[in-house]
Amino acid sequence: MYIKKVSLENYRNYEKIEVDFDKNVNLILGENAQGKTNLIESIYMASFGKSFRTSKDREVICFDKDYCRIKVDYFKYDDEGTVEIYIGKDGKKGIKADGIHVKRVSQLVENILCVIFSPEDLKIVKEEPSKRRSFIDRELCQLRVKYMDSLSRYKKILLQRNTYLKEKNPDKNIIKVWDEQLLNTGTDIIKDRKEFISKINIISGEIHNKITDGKEKLVISYDPDISEEGTEDEIKKRFSKILEESLNKDIYSGSTSRGPHKDDMKITVDGKDARKYCSQGQQRTAALSLKLAEIFLIKEEKEESPVLLLDDVLSELDSERQKFLINSLDDVQVFITATEIPDEVMKSLPGGKVLNVKKGSLI
């Protein structure tokens, strides 16, 4: 698939702009704070319904304006499609896919397949578990609509349970009602994460082997808070027992201490914990392998290539990893934001389009 055109109105520092893109490579160049990332952020929003930079929708509205609009035209499965998003400062938000109102984000994510790779993603390996959970969830939400629904329900139930736990003298029988709901959605999440990590382990391991010329072995494994072993019923019984054993602690602390919201993903290189014992270069190679594995897994499961958004990430990689990344992207539309592109990388890029951005305008 590829993005054909983006139209923005009152979005970030763009008052009104319409941009046609090349189906292969799009270089978006300019100094910092000129609007390069804003362009690819709008594509991401059309894919996921939210920004990768902020959790507050109103922050994407142009200063002193009451609303913003995003329209993204794309081509996928030999057909054309359009996603439109309206965001108002009054909190109103509307999303349309091919002119039809989208009521749930899970109805949106299958339209535009998109992978973002930014300097933040290079921290997946070494930072806290929440970064790795976000990596897992973002990918799975694109691959399986059912997973996004399960995750959304789980988070709502968890919030309700945690809110009630903070009340004075909470009734344990009422808490158990939420526990039953957590068991069902939580078990579904555990099963999907287990399968996803098993697949991403194989693909990222093969990529990592190529990057390192077979000198290092990358292994990705699931580190669940509730063991994923056994049947669905066995996982539920285990989860139920743990919630029961943790109840007094949860009431005391006012939060749910156990469950998939505490999951992690282990990353090892040659048997060593990459977070603790690997060099920065090794950590970045592992992160690059994971991000490329995302692309190949989407291709495999959706039979369509996603769009890749490279947000100022090339400058964070050495020349060898830059070349490997670029050479791995056959049949993938790429958007690259940067202040400048090294000549060596430019030579390895197929033909494309160069967009120079200055103060929210193309020059």
Rank of each mutant, 00 (worst) to 15 (best):
L290Q: 04
L290T: 08
D318Y: 14
Q283W: 01
V313L: 09
E300H: 11
Y277D: 08
V307A: 11
E316C: 11
L314H: 02
Q283Y: 03
R275M: 13
Q282C: 00
L308G: 12
E300N: 15
D318C: 10
D318H: 14
V313R: 08
D311Q: 11
S319A: 14
R284F: 12
D270F: 02
E303N: 15
E304N: 15
G281M: 02
E303Y: 09
K276V: 00
G281E: 03
K272W: 01
S289L: 05
V269L: 12
F296W: 14
G271H: 03
K272I: 07
A286L: 02
K299G: 03
L288G: 05
Q280L: 14
D270S: 05
S319C: 01
K302F: 08
Q280K: 12
D312V: 04
D270M: 01
K299H: 02
V269W: 04
K276F: 09
R284N: 09
G281D: 04
L314V: 01
I295D: 01
L308V: 14
K266R: 09
L310D: 07
Q282M: 11
R284L: 07
S279K: 04
P306N: 10
K266E: 04
A293C: 10
L290W: 02
K291P: 02
S289R: 12
V307P: 12
F296N: 14
Y277V: 00
K272L: 15
E303K: 15
Q282A: 01
Q282E: 13
T285H: 04
L309I: 09
L314C: 10
E300W: 02
S315K: 04
L288H: 08
C278N: 06
L310P: 01
L317V: 01
Q280H: 12
L290A: 12
T285F: 06
A274D: 06
K302S: 11
S279P: 06
L314F: 12
A293W: 00
E316I: 13
E316W: 05
E294Q: 15
Q283C: 06
V269S: 02
L310C: 13
A286T: 04
R284W: 09
L290V: 09
K291I: 07
E301P: 02
